[in-house]
Structure formats: structure tokens, C-alpha cells
Design a protein around this nucleic acid. Structure first.
Lengths: 202, 202
DNA sequence: TGGTCTATCTATAATAC
DNA sequence: TGTATTATAGATAGACC
């Protein structure tokens, strides 16, 4: 749909590719919106450009919700998620290599030192920003986990206490049955701490 | 683009809507594929029909990966706008500005384009690696938190159960007392766990 | 980048099978 | 539903700003 037909393969010219991307991205998002409205269906579109920029559309305002539905679909279909995950992150081993390569590249372009230095500076700032966001998130999650652990401990203690309580009650009942002569006296007499009145009837 | 113009609003006739859905879905997925190939970008499309059926496209074979990158983007933006912005990005009010500046710097050093392009490529790889590690960690932490929440719920239930248990025992005892003829038998007898010896002297 | 203009190509509404 | 046809609306390549 243009002055001439284009073959569907990576556009060689960088500029043309960028222009095409802008136009078609707009078109794709428009079409996504149209189908979601016309046909009353949930649609989510995520586009990540080469430079890492994000473009998105979702029929709901919550893309996350759609993605959750997607994931439940996938989970239902596939059960070997364990293996998939394992292989997915196998690339980690090359991280060190990647960083080294980056450093080497930076050194090699040292011709006009100023710009490169600026770049390094900017890269560091980006990295710092990422790190800050990351550690903030980790901090919050760890805090939450810690709180939950404490809650768990507390509950475990309460549970133990209650169980002891019941155990002692049972034992008491048995003792009572033994010591009293009322053979037909129904068993369990339970007493709780706050009431030391327990022994008043003596 | 048909025999006549259609207004972009929910198609009333169910049949027409279904037909339109089939056609436009096909079209949308085709367009998504085209832009991903032509412009060499990552694209993910998820469509969930009214009937709950799933249709998808992803440029990679791993939609999950793209979605992870999406989520990292969103999280990064959210947290970024929340707090960090103010404090440490002295020169740059926003992440976007920082990135833009970075890009500008990269363009300005375009003299020997090859190395710069390589640098961009490497930067993207670094970014992707970071994102993967980050979302993996988030995943694990969230899983852990989820597990703890479930544990908590279970313990709460157990606790309630035990409490009910005690309550019913108490009630039983009272009923027992009523049925016996010991009028002078003082009413509430409660016993606390540690003191089961309490009644021994009877 | 981001918008405008056309010629042209493509998607699809209506229709029928 | 899926497929095919056809007339038409819509998208977009190339160009320029």
C-alpha cells in the first residue's frame, strides 16, 4: 500500500526502516484498537524498538490483566515450565564476557576521548539509575518477605500454644476421671489461666 | 476498507462481529509480523476472544521474554517516577531525557559509524541481560512471597480451628455441670495449660 | 524525528458458497 | 465457522518540508 510494493524482509536503509517503523507502528496500534472495539475482544500489543523503546496498546487499560490471562492459557497448555525456565536463563554465563567486550569496544574508540568519556559517564548514570530502581524494588520485596516470615513465626507459636492448651486439657480430664469417684461424671473439665477462681469451690 | 465505511464501534450483529473478528485478527497478526520483519523490532500481540480463545503473535519465538521486557519497562518507569527522580539525577529530570541525551551523544560521534553501532548493539545486550536477571529475581521473590502468604492463610485456619475446639470443649463442660446436682458448684472453671496439676488434689 | 501529499497497494465489508 | 470474489475504504512508500 504505497507507491510500490515492498518485499517483506528487513529494510536495509536505516532511515527508511525507521520511517516505516513509525508509520506501521501507528497503523498497527490503530488496527489493534479497531478490532478491540468493533469485535469487543481483549487485545494487547507490545512493540519494543531496536533502541529499546517501548510502545504498547491494550484494550483494557490494564495490559497486565490481559497478559495474566495469556499466561494462564500458556500454563494450562504447558507443564514443562521448569525446563523452559532453566534454558531461558542459560545466557547468564556470558554476562562477564559481554561486559568485557563492551569495555574493550569503549577503549578502541578512544580516538576522540571527550565524547567517549561522556558516553562512559552517561552509561554509568544509566547503570546507576537501573541499580537504584532495582535495589529499591528488592528492598521492598525483601521487607515484605521478612514481615511475612515474622508473621509466620508468630502464628506457629500461637498454634503451638493452642495445641499445648488442648493437650493439657485432655490430660486434666483424664486425671479428673481417675481421682474422682463419680464414675459417671462426664469427663473433661477445662480451665483457663485468667480464672484462678478455679479452686474456689474448695 | 470494504464495500462501505464502518464506524468504529462495537458491531451489533453477532454474526457480522464474528466474521469481522476472524478477518481483522488475521490482518492484525499479519501486520504485526510485517513490521517485526521489515523494521527488525520485537513485537508481541495477544488477542483473547469473547469465547476466551487465545490468539497470539510474537516476533521472537518467546512471547514471554518480550512480556518480561515490557514489565521491566513498566516497573522501571513506575519506580522511577515515584521517588528516585528527585534525588540523584542531578542534571536530568527524567530517565527519558537522560536516554535522549545519550542517544544524541551517540549520534554526534557518528564519525566512525561502525563502532558506534556496535556500541548501541552492546548496550542493548547489556540492557537485555540486566532486564532478564532482574525479572528472574522478581519472579523468584514474588513466588516466595506467594508461598508465604499461602502458609499464613493455612496457619490462620488451623488457629481458628483450634480455638473453636477449645470453645466447644468449654461449652461441653458447662453443660455437664448443669446436668449434675452440685448446686454449690461454682460456675466457670477454667484451666490453663501449664497447671494441669490444678485438680490433682481432688 | 514528525507532518503533509499522492499514487498505489492492501485489507476488508458485503456477499455467496 | 473457512473460502472466494469484488468493490471500496484505508494504509502507506516515496517524496518533500
Amino acid at each position: 500500500m504505497g507507491r510500490r510494493k515492498v518485499e517483506i524482509k528487513r529494510i536495509q536503509d536505516k532511515n527508511c526502516r525507521q520511517v516505516a517503523f513509525c508509520k506501521r507502528r501507528k497503523g498497527l496500534l490503530k488496527k489493534a484498537k479497531e478490532i478491540s472495539v468493533l469485535c469487543d475482544v481483549d487485545v494487547a500489543v507490545v512493540i519494543i524498538s531496536n533502541r529499546g523503546r517501548l510502545h504498547e496498546f491494550s484494550s483494557n487499560n490494564s495490559l497486565t490483566e490481559i497478559l495474566q490471562r495469556y499466561e494462564s492459557h500458556v500454563e494450562a497448555e504447558k507443564e514443562n515450565s521448569a525446563e523452559i525456565q532453566h534454558s531461558k536463563y542459560s545466557g547468564f554465563t556470558t554476562m562477564g564476557e559481554l561486559l568485557q567486550t563492551t569495555e574493550r569496544q569503549l577503549e578502541e574508540t578512544n580516538d576522540d576521548g571527550l565524547a567517549v568519556t561522556d558516553l562512559i559517564h552517561l552509561e554509568n548514570e544509566l547503570q546507576t539509575a537501573l541499580i537504584q530502581v532495582r535495589s529499591r524494588k528488592t528492598h521492598l520485596l525483601l521487607e515484605s518477605a521478612k514481615g511475612l516470615h515474622e508473621k509466620e513465626k508468630l502464628l506457629q507459636e500461637e498454634k503451638k500454644h493452642l495445641e499445648d492448651n488442648i493437650a493439657s486439657i485432655k490430660k486434666n480430664r483424664e486425671v479428673n476421671e481417675m481421682s474422682t469417684d463419680f464414675a459417671d461424671f462426664p469427663a473433661p473439665h477445662i480451665i483457663c489461666g485468667q480464672q484462678r477462681m478455679t479452686l474456689n469451690f474448695l
